[in-house]
Design a protein around this nucleic acid. Sequence first.
DNA 1: GCAAAAGTGTTGGAAATACACCCATGT
DNA 2: ACATGGGTGTATTTCCAACACTTTTGC
Lengths: 246, 246
Amino acid sequence: MAVSEKEHAQKNIKTFKVIQSEVESIKRVALSVDCVIFGFDENKLKVLLIRSDSKKFKSKWSLLGDLVRPEEDLDASAYRILKQRTGLSDVYLEQVHTFGEVNRHPAGRVVTVAYCSLINIEHYRLKILDHELHWHDVENIKDLAFDHQKIFERCYSWLQKRVQEHPLGLNLLPSKFSLRELQNLYEAILNIKLDRRNFRKKFFAMDFLVDLEEEEEDVPHRPGKLYKFDYEKYEMKKKTWSGIDF
Amino acid sequence: MAVSEKEHAQKNIKTFKVIQSEVESIKRVALSVDCVIFGFDENKLKVLLIRSDSKKFKSKWSLLGDLVRPEEDLDASAYRILKQRTGLSDVYLEQVHTFGEVNRHPAGRVVTVAYCSLINIEHYRLKILDHELHWHDVENIKDLAFDHQKIFERCYSWLQKRVQEHPLGLNLLPSKFSLRELQNLYEAILNIKLDRRNFRKKFFAMDFLVDLEEEEEDVPHRPGKLYKFDYEKYEMKKKTWSGIDF
DNA sequence: GCAAAAGTGTTGGAAATACACCCATGT
DNA sequence: ACATGGGTGTATTTCCAACACTTTTGC
């Protein structure tokens, strides 16, 4: 037994007891969640920011975050923050990355877990906007508080990559949408132009869009058909990977 | 001013001061890093595990982890753990996911950040294996301690996906390798069979392999040519994404 | 000379791209 | 009638998958 303990010590392998006492003692850090909340409106991809009130970062914008409570699951924290800010609870939310540099936050050692959420502004409009909270075009995001610029950029890249393999983007649209809106969304997220015929071909070939037999209204031109996304069918057919492609 | 504070309170938006006091007070958690260390040997993908010493999880295997120190960057923790266990410091290491359920660990509330590392066993052989540490075939990993099974599975999936878009896998091979070894590696990671001619075609077309003008030795058949990977050329040409592909 | 793996090309089908005209609606 | 975006098809090219025989080495 003593031998075992000694061996452990030599190799820096801690016994359960040692870990337990460390957990209970001083080796703790504050943990926060920061949410990068994307929305889509006026054919632009937007992100929801709040004005920071810290002295040093006065007048800078920051992400929506809060400390994780000691008795709260990490994912639950993210949902709580989102709910507090937007009133929405049935949203797309995914963990992206954890940022843990010692000096990343001026309030002390705070490790933060970044989550992305995609909300569709149709729902969000139901809520009242706080005057300290604003949607910003992702194109013009710069000089955020703390290390939030870095966090934002990582989440944005994550989103760009993700929407190409997974139809997440649809969480940003109203439940009924036209193909033009869908294409505008992809063009806004990826910041590229797409060929309209090929775009349609691609989506119809995927066969996840349901024709609602309805049309746009109040548009000053020929109205487009409206569709919804068939999540069930998507889950069934979901692509299984194979193929090397650097 | 009082109004502003009140508004904040109403909306659960905390002032910097409030956050600072929370960071310094009780709202802290223990934070750990767990490393999922992959290796490749005998044409099998392996993962390095240690025998857990906790009473409840006696005789189960677990990942290599430790608490993050209060004055240590998160990434630095992962490198430290790896160094302690394997003696290696120049390895591939990437953060994968953070696990933060309240009851995930019996020693108390411990949030853990999972890192994947890929080490090539040619280097690792230089170090002495601790008798509590072993390489396990990824095929037979089951019933790990705590929630380590879940962490492992997530990292394994991550690896499978990642090697298809990024030539990480090469970190698992010796610096000189034959195409057969490379193919075996991909087959082991992805758990599929690949066509030899198409595999070669693909890699040669990528043009990241440098022909060393050397051959295998001591093989009981026709020796294969040896190659190394040209990381610089890869960095130059690295693919920029575009295209929707669910 | 035999076993074992190395090395090598072609072909057919599928998917991606590029591209231009008519249609329905509101004003 | 005109301005605006909706809707559609085809030809070309590129990429991927399938597939079998000859070569080199060690024994």
